[in-house]
Every structure is written in structure tokens, then in C-alpha cells.
Design a protein around this nucleic acid. Sequence first.
DNA 1: GCGGGAGGC
DNA 2: AGTAAGGCCTCCCGCC
Length: 943
Amino acid sequence: MSQNHLYLVDGSSYIFRAYHRLPPLTNKHGEPVGAVYGYTTMLWKLVDALDKADGPSHLAVILDKDSKSFRNEIYAEYKAHRPEPPEDLRPQFPMIRDATRAFSLPCIEEAGYEADDIIACYTKAAVAEGWKVTIVSSDKDLMQLIEEPSPSGGGGVDMLDTMKNVRMGREHVIEKFGVGPELVGDALALMGDSADNIPGVPGIGPKTATKLLVEYGDLESVLAAAPEMKKSAMRDRLIEHADMARLSRVLVELDCAVALPMPLDDMALDGIPEEPLRAFLDHHGFKSLLLKIGGPAASPNASNRDFAAAIAGDGNAPKPGEASKPVAVVREHQPIDRSQYETVTTEAALDAWIAEARHAGAVAIDTETDSLDCITGRLVGVSMATAPGKACYIPIGHGGNDLLSEKPEQLSLALVTAKLDKLLIDEAVRKIGHNLKYDMSVLAQHGLEFRNFDDTIVMSFALDGGAGGHGMDELAQRHLDHACIAFKHVCGTGAKQISFAEVDLGTATEYAAEDADVTYRLWQVFTARMAAEGGTRVYQMVDRPLVPVIAAMEQRGIMVDRAELSRLSQGFESEIARLETTIHEEAGAPFTIGSPKQLGEVLFDKMGLKGGRKGKSGVWSTDINELERLKKDGVPIAQKLVDWRQLSKLKSTYTDALQEQINAKTGRVHTSYSLTGAQTGRLSSTDPNLQNIPIRTEVGRQIRHAFVAAPSHVILAADYSQIELRLAAHMADVPELKAAFARGDDVHATTAMELFGEVNRDTRGRAKTINFAILYGISRWGLAARLEITPDEAQAMISKYFERFPGISNYISETLEFARAHRFTETLFGRKTHFPRIDASNQAERQGSERAAINAPIQGTSADIIKRAMARMGPALRAAGLDATRMLLQVHDELVFELPEAEVEAARPIIEHVMANAAEPAVTLSVPLGIEIGTGPSWGAAH
DNA sequence: GCGGGAGGC
DNA sequence: AGTAAGGCCTCCCGCC
């Protein structure tokens, strides 16, 4: 290491944040340890970065000693309004010291000084020696200490927020305070700090403080200039409270007078003795961390049976002699070595791998094809992994055919699929895949099916929904600290992209076997975490069973009437052309109507129309609200623009695009569903998206009529009626709404009666808008815009709603409280959605997270319910002897089937029963789930 | 690759 | 202090 790099951990502030962020875990002794766990994992991460770039060479933890500082002497109110720490946090303070000692790290605290002061002293001392310093904290007071490295790259002080995983330098300080670190103290003195009860100048917040400092230079200059400022409340306050500002400045100054209790050199980090750490982790039962120091990951030959034992907490003890060996660095993972991967080209080798998979009891599998399309994609090879680092690739379809290259020596498709078939249906062997839906569809072309499987993409979603993506490369980076070979590195991109079948076997083996290897390792990580964090319920009961169901729906596809789409396209085209001519005439010159920028300029600059809004990028808004407003003002071009927009959208997105999506092999359209695409647990649909086919306008609805049943079949569409509102009534416990649903009443009318005392078209419509606004996390402004009333009137309406339905109000506050304490929300079935930004300092961002957190349990529970219905639908239909009824599509609260006319009457009650009872037995709802079913020759006709 | 706009729930 | 202000998605287009 060329330069010493000191990490100073602000332990006290960390545990408060960890406490609020993590669920209230207890260890096996019944002690609350949530914050301790968070603290331990943070230390682990820091220490593990020892030999990495920007990692620590020296490290110390600084804690507040429970005593007062000089600040209390000069200002009695300092930190006086702080509430006592919560009951279950207090016993965790001493454990923080235990944890630090378990890592054999120095832990420093001094009577009469706050941790911030000690951190400042060490920072200055280390910088004086030319060291680099990282302060691990998120306390804004400490931002005063941030310094740029010298031009030669030496020294420098930055801050690391381990929870948000961001490193903050000077530019972050300027972003937050509008001034550099040297003026942070002055800014704090002006604006005050409610957390520490520092007064500042009343009426001056961060924005004004920044403005003043930028204008006048520093605090003293601001105070000196105050009498000359133009008369305002602010000027008077600056004069009146100048002394308070000066006192505040002293309070926020970091005190560097303390003598260093430990020399810098003693903080060197060169090894963590394993034993005290193991004892500590074992005492608290932090199994996932224990695994990392003695777990099977350390041994490349460990099978998953060892792994299972490790999770269970036995069989994990180190061998004698190894037990107390100091580890230079606590390694989270064995690095991935691709050199041992095997290319399987003989039957004997294939047999050996399949035998190994049976012996191990678990095998990761990945298929390679020549296309992303799993319906027509040709199988090119299969990779397998039976332990970390132990992986192979079985080429099948490389070279040959129309490709110029020679066909390499490889096993035949028939042989490999026959042998794989036995392994895949073997209930005793767990098959692991990443996005197994794809592999299931590819292998289904050859008649293969999977029994006993895990899908790591779905496991990741169940554990970390909302906390990042779930692609394999991203997960490998996050959990294994490993960069996967990029597909484009192997096959290229764009015009030069080649098929995987053209890749040479050496490269193909490295790439494909690595995918299986990484999948296997991810499975180990997730299996351990599922046990520890309890994410199994929703995974095992809802998401995993859905994987083969979705794969089958995608394979079936839906029939589309190409001639009908083409007819619609032509009709739209001539209407679009006609509108275009008139629009250009009325505008006085031709322009690109599809360009919002040009359109805005035509309407508001050239034609001089009034009342336009500009967005943040400076272009005139021309969205539907603006156009509707112009229509009301009697601008004739507005209606034509609305029509033009609608028809262009329908033509380009639906009638043209859908024709191209018709699969040449099946003659049907096969969407692709993502099980992990929506934070709340909903599915999403792409290529094409069949979850946004128009229905609301007559002209749009024509597109639904082009989705047709096969000859002598019909389409059956089954909808959950108002499912989210029903779930809100249940979850928020609103007796009036529950009763209305139980009676089968019109619930919007019920709401209208409660709010307005009478039911007519107008009040019912308003009530409906409010009901939906509640589901989405209400705001007076949003509601005001929707109802075309003032924000004050909207607020009055919301207040009345909360008064009439106090359950809703309680639900919202309880949900937000939970989300802030745990960083996630949960559905009735235990699906978590994470909200890492729920306490963002940016208000818009925070409020966005809050609205999402209010919506997620409701939308997510609805998603869980329809997924359960889908998983049960096939077996229920088969049990009733309905062998030809097929589920084709899911549109969030709707299922679309294709079935022979002869099965309709028998299928109808079964579908209704499965959907209506899908929550049971896991959850019993206090509202009925209403189902509406329609049938017809097309999807449009079935509604 | 981004942002505006618009289709669905 | 004053701002902007409904949740979850995907797709198309113009524009840089």
C-alpha cells in the first residue's frame, strides 16, 4: 500500500441509524440485537476492504462516552430536547463495544468530548502526517472536515455513508450546503440544527443560509452586513439574533484540544484474529456472518450437503488446527477461478457430471441458445455447476448448419436431452437456475420439464425487492464481488454480433460454466439469507410455484387476427394524414407534430396561445392536460392534436407493432412476463407488452377485438372487481366499506353518501376519484388537479374522508411508521418491498417513497392473490377434467383463457372459485373477492 | 440514452 | 423558506 488510509468509524451515530433501519431482531438469548447486527455487518464490510483500492490500512471506532461536553457548560439547552433512546436500543450500546473488541479493533471514547471532536482530532493528526482519511458517518456536522486530496493525489478526507453506500467529497458538501466544507460551520450556525437543539437564527433555513454565505462570504461578514440590507424580516432577525448565531458557531465547532488517547500507528489493521470474532458471532447467532469465516465457501469442494449443514448451524466447525489461525483478511468469498471449468464432449464425462449432481443433491443449470426468443431459439449448449468453482459446459449445437465454421466435436442433442430429462425430473435433486422460466421454455421444445427447482432471480426478488436489480451480473457484483464475463464481450454487439453457436468452445465454456457457477454461489447466499431473514413464505408459496405456470403461458401465446390489425392500421393512417394536413394549415406551416418541442413552440410562441406551462427542461408542456385546457378555451387545433396523438399511439404501438410480433412458427403472439419487473410483486409484460392493450376508448377497444380464439374455441376473461379497494377496506379495517362490499353495494356510491350526503353522478364520480387517490397515497394537490378544485377544498375533502373512515388514516400512519422503522413494507402474504429512500432529505424524493410505501402493501397483496390463483388454476381445471382450457394472459387483476366451447360452462365456476378463494387458507379476508367473467370470440368481446 | 407523452392496471 | 405535489409498469418518438 502506497499511502496510509485511516478509517474513523462514528459508532454512536451509526447504531441509531441501524436501529431504525433494521427489523427488531433478537438473538437466541432473547436480547434485542438488530442494531448490533447492522453494526457488525458494517464493520465486516469495512475490514474486508483491507487490501482493496480505497480500503483501510488503519481503522478505529470512536464512541460517545456517556457524559457531557464543554457545550453543555456554555449552552444549557444543548441536546436538551433529545428523547431517551428506545427501550430496546439501550442494552445494545455496550454490545457495540463487544462487537468492536470481537474484531480486535481499537475503540476510543473520552470523557468530556463528543465522538465528533475525537474524530476531528484524529483526522487533523492523520492529515498532518500525509495520510488519507475516511470518516464513516453520515453526521452533517462532520462534513466540516472534508478536504480534497492534494494535487499529487495524497491526503484528503472524505466521508463514507455505509448505509447508502456513498462516498462524499467536497462536491457532495457543496451539493448539500451550497458552500464548501470550510463554511459548513457558518451555515449550521445560521440555520441551526434541531437534532442538537442548536438555535441558529430563527426563520433562516438551509436555502437562505446558503444564499447569504454565497453573497457575503462568511458568518461574520453576513452579520456585519445585516444593518445595510434592505428592510425585511430577515434583516431584523439577523440583527436581533446575531449573538445566538455566534454562540451556535461555537457549538458546532469541532474541538481539537483533546490529547490523542492512542497513537495513530497503533490503529494499523493487519489481521483479524478469528477466534474472538467467531465466539461473538456464535453468541448472537449471526449465522450468515459465521458462514463466511468457516463456511463451505472456503472450500471449493464442499457440496451443498455440507452447506445445508452449515446453515443448520452444525458441521460448520473448523477442523482442529485451523480454528485459531488468524485470517489476514476476513474474506467474504472465494474468488472465482474459471480455469478449472470443463468442456464435456464425451458420454462418459456427461455421465460423471450427472452422477455428481445426484450425489451433491443440487445442481445449477443454464442453457445457451442462439436467440433471446425461447420459443424459436435453438439449444446451443447446457452448463452445470455442482459446487462453487465446480462447473462444466456441454456444447450441443455449435458450428455447422448455415454457419461457415467447422462443426466441433460435441455430443448429440438427442443424447444430452435424454440424459438431462432424468436429472430434471428427479425429485431428489434440486435444480437451480437464474430466471429458470427461460430455460424451462427452451428445454420444453425438447419435451423436458423441471421438478424440484429453485430460481435465484425469484429468490433475490423475494429477499431484496425494491433494493436493486436482480440480473445475474449485478447480483454477482453485489453478493460475490465478482464481475461476470459480459455477453457482449463474447458475442459482440450490433451488426457485428454473432450467435452463441459461433463462439469457440473454450470461450463458450468460460462464459457458460461461469454462469452456472455464479448461479450456484448465489443460491448458497440466498438460501442462507432466506433462513435468517424469513423470506421463504412468499417465495415458496407464491412466486416459485408460478415459474412453470408463466413459462407455459408464454409458450402458448395468443392468436391475433393479422388482417384485422392491418385494416385498423390503414384506417388510422388515412385519418392521421387528414389531421396532419389540417393541423399544418391551422398552424400556418408544416412541422413535426410528434415533436413536443416543436409543437410547444408552434402553439405558445408562434400562435401566441396563452397560459402554457414550461417543464424543468424549458420546453412547453403539451400533454393532455394542456391540450384539454386549450380545447376549453376554444382553440380548434387542440382537439385535432389530441386525436392525432391517440391515433399515432395506437398505430405505432399496437396495430403496426403487434403484427410484427406474430411468431412465424406458431402464428401467435408470445409475450414475455417478468417475475421481478415491478417492485410491488406485480408481473410485467414485454415484447410485446400485453398488459396495456387499449380498452378505455372505443377506437382503442377495436384492438382488443383482434385478439381472437382459435377455431371452435372462445376467449374467457375473468376479472377481480375492485380488488385493491376491497383489500384497502380489509387492511385498513373500514367497517362501512367492508359492509358495502359484503352486501354487493356500489362502493363509490357508499363513499359519496358518506362524504356528500347524497348520491348522484357528480358526487359518485368525485368519491371514486378520492377512493383511488387513497390507494396511491393521497396529496391535496394531486386530488385538487384531478377534481379541478382548489388544494384547500381538496384538503377539506381528505380530512372529511379520514374523519368518516378513520381506519384509512390509521393505516397510512401505521404503514409509514413501519416503513421508516424497518425500511420495507409487507403484504398480507409477507412479501417485502424495500424503501431505502424513505427518509431521504430531498422532500420530493421522500414523499415519493412514502406514497409508494402506502400503495405497495395493497398493490402487492393483490398481486400475491392473483398469483396464487394462477398457480392453482391448472391443477383445479385438470381435476375437473377440463383438459383443454388454457390460461393465456394475466393483466394484474384479470386472467384470460382460451377454451373449447364445450368446456365453457364447466370451466366458468371453477375459475371463479379458484380466484375468489385464492387468499385462503394463508389469509382470511373480511371482504369477499368479487369476480366478473365474460366470454366471446375475441378478448374485446369477452368484456 | 433521455425525457415527454400515453397506453394499461 | 418555498418548491412541487397519485402508485406500478412498457413503448414510441424526437433529439442529443
